[in-house]
Structures are given as structure tokens and as C-alpha cells.
Amino acid sequence: MSLYKNKPDRFFSDLLGSDSPLGARVYCAGFESGEWRRDQYAEHVMEWLPDYALAEEELSVNHGNIYVRLKQAAVRVYTSEKYKKRGELGEISIHAICRDFYDTIPISNRVFYKSASNDVVKAFDMVHARVIDGEPVQIWLGESKLWKDRLDAVQDAIKSMRSHLAAGFLKSEKLLLGPQIPKTTPRYDEIMHFFKPQTSLDELLGNAVFPVLVAANSQAVIAAKTGDDEYKSSIKKEVEEILAAVSNAKDLAGLKILVISVPVADKDALLDAFDLKLKGLQS
């Protein structure tokens, strides 16, 4: 059995559920004692750290190596003091949400492209596959943005998508990704088909799902104390703005894009909370 069957307990709520706008989902950290759960969000991201930063064979831990494995995972994320403009918190968030809610598995992690901990990698933020019995294999290529302003975030996500999908870049990235996929990955041959040089980019693009995570400061979160109907109504208006911006990118219209909105109260405070926990493991 794949070690990826094991996952942390669910933390985020699928806030709007069946009432979500078509093509989007909102995942909320929730509230506690009238406050948005910032520290708990950071804690949950830390729970996903090994799943995000360790290869599958490294996930076989025991009481004799668990501390070393956790430190290895933490150091692979970043060690820089200049973390306010880094994107790893968003990357781990999209990893966790897709693993938890959509049963994807990682097939080529960005951290393994780094030659040093603080390297910035120009590639898709997430490369997963969805491997469900009785269903065709699906490649999931994700982009994540953690910004103060949600509309700035989605515009930057669109810019990144266009850059990644340029024929020359995507062809090169496809050739780089293929050798990174472990041969132990479930349905390896079916997944590898999409990364072979003989396979048309059109076939990869036709198969792939492109989750785009937009985590940004939300007036709805700031004003709320609970996840009540008023809060949900305000959040729905915010995600509809994000969807409208994506819809305006006509050159991306043929792609299967899934907008993942993660509203936060204060992006910088969330990064501070995450950095404190990450550096605690590294010391």
C-alpha cells in the first residue's frame, strides 16, 4: 500500500460545499473564540510538512528517525530570514488541500529541484496525479499565490500560468518532470505516458487539471467572528471576483482550471506564525 494513503486529519472546511460557484471551491480555516484560526492554520501546514518535503521512501519513519526526518523536511522548505515574499506556505497549502479533498498524490516535488534550501524554483508549484480505481489517471499541475490582495494574486497566478504553458517552457518542464517520477508510483506507466517526449503537449493539456490557489487577505474574514451565513455570503462574493478575473483570461479558457480560494485575516501574521514553527524544527 502506498504511504500516501496516510494523511493528517482534516482541518479546512469546504465552506460553501454544493453552493460553491462553478469552477471554484473555498477552504476555510474557521474561527475559535471569535478569532480567525491563524495559529491553527500554521500548525496544520506543519502537519503536512513531511508529506510535502520528503520522498515517499523517507516517509517510513519510526521512533529512531522521526526527529531527523522532521528536521530534514523543515530545512528543505527554506531557512531564509527573508520569508515574507516566499511562496512555500501557499505551496504546502495547495498540496494539503489537493491531497486531502481530491485524493491526489505527489509525483514530482519542487523541493527536490533545489540545490540549496533557499533556491527559488521556476516550475509548477504542485505536480500531482489523481489515481482512482476505475477512473483514468489525471495529472494535476498547480499554481499557488499567497498575497495581501486577492485580485493581485489571481492576476499573478494567470501570468505564471501563461509562462508555464508557453510551448517551449512546458516542453522542457515535461522532460524534466518525467525522470523525477518514482517508478513505485501507482499506475506509473500511465502517468509516464504524458511526460514522454513522443506524447503531444496537447494530450497532456487535455488530460490535466490546473488547480489555482489564491490565499489572500479577506474583508469577510476580518469582519467575521463565526462562519455564519453572512460570512459565507461575503466570501461567495469574493470568490466570484476571482472567478471573473480567471474567466477574462480567454487564452486559458480551454483548460480545466479549479480555483481554490483560501481567505485569510492577515497574510503577514500567518507567515510569521508559520515561520516561527518552521524555524523551531530547524534549530
Rank of each mutant, 00 (worst) to 15 (best):
Q138P: 00
K84T: 01
K250S: 13
S233V: 07
D133C: 02
V45D: 00
E57D: 15
V137K: 04
P197Y: 14
A224C: 07
G34Y: 06
V26I: 05
S108G: 10
Y231M: 10
I181Q: 08
E81L: 14
I107C: 06
D125H: 08
V246L: 14
V214Y: 08
E238F: 00
L170Y: 08
E81Q: 13
V131G: 01
P179K: 13
Q180W: 14
R99Q: 12
K183C: 01
P179G: 11
D229S: 10
K7W: 01
V239H: 00
E135F: 14
I257V: 12
G254A: 10
F274R: 01
H193G: 03
K114R: 15
I139N: 02
A74L: 10
F194K: 12
S247F: 12
G30H: 09
G134H: 04
I94C: 02
V111E: 08
L243H: 04
I105E: 01
S234R: 13
F124Y: 11
E57N: 14
L15D: 02
A153F: 01
E203A: 15
L176N: 15
Q219W: 09
L213V: 08
V259P: 02
M46T: 04
F210T: 05
L276C: 05
A29V: 09
V61G: 01
V127S: 00
D152N: 11
L252C: 05
I105R: 09
Y231Q: 04
D268Y: 12
A224M: 09
L146H: 07
S233A: 13
L16D: 04
N109E: 13
S18R: 05
Q219L: 12
D202R: 14
K148G: 04
K122M: 03
L243T: 11
E241V: 05
F12S: 04
D228F: 05
P136W: 04
L89G: 03
A29L: 11
V121M: 09
S60E: 06
E238L: 04
R25Q: 09
S144V: 00
Y83Q: 03
S13H: 02
E58R: 07
D268N: 12
R110F: 07
E135H: 14
R130H: 07
Q72Y: 11
I191L: 06
S218E: 01
Q72N: 15
E81I: 14
A249D: 10
K148I: 10
L176R: 15
K232G: 01
A216D: 00
K225T: 15
L70C: 08
W48Q: 09
G168F: 12
D51A: 13
S33M: 03
I132W: 02
